[in-house]
Amino acid sequence: MLTKRQRRTFRYVLTYLVCVVAFLFFITPMLWIAYSSFRTPEAIFSAKIYTAAKDFTVDNYKTVLSVTDFPVYFWNSLRLGLVVTAASMLLSIPGAYGLSRYPLRGKNAYIMGVFSMQMFPVVLLLIPIYTVIFAIGLFNTIVGVALGQLMLVLPFAVWMLKGYFDNLPKDIEDSARIDGCNLFQTLSRIVLPISAPGIMVAAFYAFVVSWGDYLVVSVISQSQRTSTLTLALQRLGSALILRWGQVAAATVLTIVPTILLFSFVQTRLVEGLTSGAVKS
């Protein structure tokens, strides 16, 4: 039988062991590419981990930002992400609020329906969507891509927000209604402010899905003009001669915005994402 003290030591050792392994596996690859993006080609190809101070450079970033169309792709990814986030929030906030608070015949069927939409194979849906978007002249446009990405975001966003609204106390809204607030006033003055953390997470989710999407963009945008970072990265990565320093710099520029946003919502992320799972 172990003493309490031995048990505590054992627990500490195990905990740190798991954390160190987790750090090495999950975080090192990102640190390695960030580190490499500041190295000269000679340093990268030297097959050494250590780099002398004189072999650090920002040339990779300079080249990526000035020689290639990278800034254009960055701008495309950014406005696409903003459009998709705005549109999906405009649709899913009232939708989720309605599902959470208002009487509705066959409500469970609606909820189950929304949830089961995540089962639809997006690769299949894209075939008819491509045809329609082509027919209405939105092929190779940001709006066309945004419409396609909406369906990636909406089902999960609605389900997640509905769970979040379910867990909020109802009393304040009731008293607001008794005080004569109409639906719009209740939503904008009461519901939005108190559910801001949940909505931020939903918005973050929408933005990250759009920013990271390759599938929809590759089908609906086939011109350089509307290409995004993910498409550019894929092209860079499959080039015959890999300039790893530049590829690394481009990768870092693609990752950094998502990591920055993540650091803002980080503490609330899981609570928001899984609120559909927790019933109180």
Partner: peptide, 8 residues
């Protein structure tokens, strides 16, 4: 690692 694009 969950938030970065799969392309990356």
């Amino acid at each position: 690692s969950w938030v970065i694009p799969v392309a990356a």
